[in-house]
Computed example of a mutant assay.
Amino acid sequence: MQNGSNTPSSEALIIVDVQPEYWSSSPAVSSSFPEFPLQLQRCLSWARSRGLCVTWIRCEYNNEKSPWLRNFAKLNPDKQALIEFNQEDLLWEDFAVPVQGEAMVIKSSWNGVSNTSLTSYLKECNVDNCYLCGLITSVCVQHTAFGLFESGFSIKIVEAACADRGRDRHEKALALYGGYMYELVEVEGEARGGGLTMSGERGVVEDQTPTVITADNYEKLAKEYLKKR
Rank of each mutant, 00 (worst) to 15 (best):
S120V: 03
L52T: 02
K74V: 10
A47Y: 11
E88V: 10
F149A: 15
V113Y: 08
G178N: 02
S32C: 10
Q19E: 08
Q80H: 05
R58S: 15
C53L: 12
Q19I: 12
W110S: 13
Q208C: 09
L91V: 15
N86W: 08
E21H: 13
P8H: 05
W23F: 13
E206H: 07
P37I: 02
G189N: 00
S151Y: 01
I106H: 00
G200V: 00
N76T: 14
C125W: 08
A175Y: 09
L221P: 00
R50P: 03
R70C: 09
D216S: 14
K107E: 11
C140G: 12
G195F: 06
F149W: 11
R50K: 12
K220Q: 15
K123C: 10
L135Y: 02
W56G: 03
I155P: 05
T119H: 06
I83S: 09
L122V: 04
P77N: 05
A222T: 07
E93M: 01
E219C: 14
P77T: 06
I14Q: 05
P77K: 04
S45P: 04
V185D: 01
K74L: 15
V127K: 01
V139Y: 10
A222G: 14
A222C: 05
A163Y: 09
N63K: 11
G189Y: 00
S32M: 05
A215Q: 13
L226P: 00
S138G: 11
S30Q: 07
Q142L: 15
L226F: 01
V212C: 01
D17A: 12
G147T: 09
V185P: 04
G112F: 12
L90A: 06
S154P: 01
A175C: 12
G4A: 15
F85S: 02
E102V: 03
W92L: 11
G101T: 03
C53S: 10
Q208L: 10
W46S: 14
P27K: 04
G152C: 14
K123P: 03
N71R: 13
V139D: 08
D89A: 03
L135T: 01
R70W: 07
L44A: 10
L176E: 14
R229I: 12
K172Y: 11
L75R: 11
C162L: 07
L52I: 01
S24L: 00
M1L: 14
R48Q: 07
K79F: 15
F153Q: 04
I157K: 03
Q39E: 15
I213Y: 03
S120Q: 12
V99T: 12
F85M: 01
N217T: 00
S10M: 08
Y180G: 02
A73W: 00
P67N: 06
P98A: 05
Y177E: 10
